[in-house]
Amino acid sequence: MAFLEVKDLHVSYQRAITALTGVSFTMEEGQIMAILGANGAGKTTTLRALSGFIGLDNARVTKGRIGFDGQDLTRRPPYEVTRQGVVLVPERDKVFPNLSVHENLEVVTSRASGTRRSELTDLVYTRFPRLAQLRKREAGLLSGGERQMLALGSAIVCAPRLLLIDELSLGLAPVIVEEIVEHLRVIRQDLSLTILLVEQSAAVAFRLADSAVVLEHGEVALTGTSEALQSDSAVQNAYLGTGTEGRRSYRAVAEARRLAEQEGRA
């Protein structure tokens, strides 16, 4: 059984607008996977569905199943999902602006014991020394990069086994992204984390991830290892700016490939 198994996931907003129409994929423990796709393809919705909806966001899972390490996490509220070790770093509003850096780490409520908590807090301060300098600073006064470090840090204190990261690089200078990616790699080693990330920047995604899922219109259009996808012409065109062909839909590419395979078999 897979570590994370997403099966035929349907999500709709406001009881009417359908955002996901049958997303399925699986992840193994220790993997780093990226979700790619155009704006509105359902990347963020997929992550949010995994981390759990709450009445406040007007979204709900209408069909499908989310299995994590032998447990059913479908339609569980975020605080239960977090306590199971599936922790989201959201794209926006990722820290509590009126709490200090230290309070942002302290407010976390997890199933980790007291000693484990302080170990994780120490780990965050060791790996992100910048946060240790800013312990007392209000989070609302942090720069974008510091805020992203704090968001990662507070997720780490939740004792994650599967970390969901929405837009690690968005709005940050390349140098800062570089730094955060390096920190994240080290922490991933420390805690043997499994990571699922959504990235606008395919370059960043492929540097971190060993495989990827490409979403289009709320459905999975392509899946594969990073190497395979990087050499895929459609992905090159849309994300890496290295392709030579004109823009094509991934679905069209996938369809064409499927037909070619069928012909090959026949």
Partner: peptide, 12 residues
Amino acid sequence: QNPLLAAQRGIN
């Protein structure tokens, strides 16, 4: 400050 983030940080 942010109920959704609070829930995502494990707060019931």
